[in-house]
Design a protein around this nucleic acid. Structure first.
Lengths: 129, 129
DNA sequence: CTTGCTGCAAAGGTTTTGCATTGTT
DNA sequence: AACAATGCAAAACCTTTGCAGCAAG
């Protein structure tokens, strides 16, 4: 703990994640970062993503059997369109806070909530009609 | 649709899931069901779990890279203890309904919500002190 | 009988790991 | 100089799939 070295690979990965509003997979991060660091490997990307997630610098969560990473650690929710698979951010801080409050008790001591909605997005809804 | 055959394997799997309050992995279901059906294979377990989930007879969700299955399809939330890894049910129908309502709009058409809390459970909290 | 389901084995895709080397501190 | 981090390749892991035989309707 606290004895991490800031390598060019780690920095690039972190910068990349903070620069995009998408929720890339490890593979996507790898491809993006490869443009600047052609020698980087997928293994390194995984190792860094996992480390950053452990430290709470980024978010890691699972959508349908693969990890997605998110540079925005501020509490927000996600919407998954089950038609097109798109993952969309929803910013409703109150909702997360409200949820946290509702379970905080002598039984549970929540540190974070993950709220994911599944349904249809605007675009797919239109197509379906 | 509607042309499924109720095989002994499928029945056993469904019965098992409904009989437990845990959230077993496919592997765990396989082991449990194997006691009565020694010839069953993991592949069959997966096929049935996926089919049942598609039909909405059970729930399927991801916790840390593996699928978990839940025989209780009624809307409830989950609490994951990050210390011991335990997965606990929380029954707060209102919370889910509230969440759904808050995003339902011209933009999003949610069909379901998944709310997972991460934190410390009572037992681990005690140990930590 | 029909054809959906099974067991078996093999393949698939994502993530992790061992090891020698490199590069931060 | 130490040792954390990397690249490479192989392994590990969970899940899916093709196919021939079986069995539910």
């Amino acid at each position: 703990m606290g004895k991490n070295r800031m390598t060019s690979q780690r920095l690039k990965i972190l910068e990349y994640l903070r620069s995009v509003k998408t929720h890339p997979t490890a593979e996507m991060v790898y491809k993006a970062v490869s443009r600047d660091l052609p020698a980087i490997t997928l293994a390194t990307v995984y190792r860094n993503l996992n480390l950053l997630a452990e430290q709470g610098q980024i978010l890691r969560f699972e959508i349908g059997k693969e990890y997605r990473f998110d540079g925005d650690t501020c509490c927000h929710q996600h919407f998954v369109c089950t038609k097109c698979g798109k993952l969309i951010d929803i910013f409703n801080k109150k909702l997360s806070e409200q949820a946290m409050k509702s379970v905080d008790s002598e039984e549970f001591f929540p540190k974070s909530v993950r709220i994911i909605f599944y349904g249809t997005c605007k675009k797919c809804k239109k197509k379906g009609e």
